[in-house]
Nucleic acid binder design. Structure first.
Lengths: 244, 244
DNA sequence: TAGTGGTCTAGACCACCAC
DNA sequence: TGGTGGTCTAGACCACTAG
């Protein structure tokens, strides 16, 4: 076998091993990892090589390091999830914290388009095609602002429709109960006329121009874990994003 | 004087020095920097410390490294600028390359809001408040899709209204002629009703829902270099972005 | 005081490129 | 063949944390 085709730097191999363990839930959220020297000895590399892999994971917000204490699995708190992935801001730029109310919850089969968006067909033949659809209203300063439908594949979130209560930011639940750590979201935005049936929920007139966002949320293992669609009035706020 | 308050790691000092030189145009776009060892000797640090600073600049797309050849200043080509900062995509996800037509060009005073957005007041008292406003139509597949107004402060872009021709992606011009390297853009998106005077330019009906984006473009020195506003129909495409 | 991560150095070896 | 960046190691010293 040729080595050149398979060659991976040691730090990359260490990185992959760590990702694998984190994906498998080997270390729980907020848990401390072994020290750099301990990991280095276990994997048979130098401490500097482990450090390089750890720094990469820190850059991806998967780990956090605290000088003098240790290296920890990032915890998706309500606040950090909001701050990181919730992109609506006041026109001035101030952060907004929405409150959230679930208005419907249904277990059903995914449609063809949803199967594609959730990449359910690529998993395996005879894949579980059931999903839970959660419909929520998110309010800002007490006023309804965002109408959102979230799709959760049952293949990933077993019996999530049996949860007693859904938190404001679902990602904390995903991490704690289902070993799903969202590390990336992919948004697609369009301006559309507000559908009449949604207008009621937002106290807006039908056909008002609203922002429609579709979001695929990516797990640490690189696969789509959740897909959602939202309608948002941008009369009082903006979708704010920085590209580097 | 206390050292602790001013303490900066060596690699950070090297980084700052390099940023300063790049901002000043000490190295031109596409130019090769000295080798790691040469920089290390010049700055009195080890090669590993220089490497850490260089890698940071590579991560920020400011430098590119080619194994066996050297380290170069990133060049803002038409293609790379488009791919990096132009976020409109077909619903399927394929890249779009717009063509661009300038329909108006005016030199005038900035309004109060524009002064704030361009941060002209923070530069110095008696700052130059003149701007050039370029109005452009960007077409995709030959059909007008985006109506855009770009504001260029004369304090940064001297006599830019005298340019014979403006390229499709302005950032290449900024880098080549004005020593401005855009390293970040901050977008704010809203859904609005298409104003009547703009509807004509886009062959759309007035009041159609369109995406309105406001963009501040940030120079390598961290300051706003350009501010623009655009109206875009999203009937056939989406604004696509990934958050990590 | 002991253990952790943070910085910095020096040096070895490899892969790639150009002459 | 010589110069460049890419990887890896080993070790020193510092700063922070906790008992």
């Amino acid at each position: 076998m040729s080595l050149s085709t398979n060659f991976q730097p040691l730090y990359k191999q260490v990185y992959d091993t760590l990702i694998e363990r984190l994906s498998a839930g080997y270390w729980k959220p907020a848990a401390a990892l072994p020290s750099e020297f301990a990991l280095a000895e276990e994997m048979g590399v130098s401490q500097g090589t482990v450090r390089k892999a750890l720094n990469q994971l820190v850059a991806e917000n998967i780990l956090v390091r605290r000088q003098g204490k240790g290296t920890y699995v990032s915890e998706h708190t309500q606040e950090s999830s909001m701050f990181r992935f919730f992109r609506y801001r006041e026109a001035g730029g101030d952060d907004l914290i929405p409150s959230t109310e679930v208005i419907a919850l249904e277990r059903r089969e995914a449609t063809a388009r949803e199967i594609e968006k959730l990449e359910l067909n690529t998993r395996h033949k005879n894949a579980e095609l059931g999903v839970v659809e959660v419909t929520r209203i998110r309010s800002i300063n007490g006023k309804p602002a965002i109408f959102e439908r979230v799709l959760q594949p049952l293949a990933i979130f077993q019996d999530i429709d049996k949860e007693r209560e859904l938190p404001n930011s679902l990602y904390t639940l995903y991490q704690e109960k289902y070993n799903i750590s969202i590390v990336e979201v992919r948004d697609e935005l369009q301006a559309v006329s507000l559908p009449a049936d949604i207008a009621d929920h937002l106290n807006l007139t039908a056909n008002a121009p609203v922002l429609m966002t579709e979001r695929a949320s990516i797990n640490i293992d690189g696969r789509v874990a959740e897909w959602s669609q939202a309608y948002c009035s941008t009369d009082n706020f903006v979708y704010s994003v920085s590209l580097k």
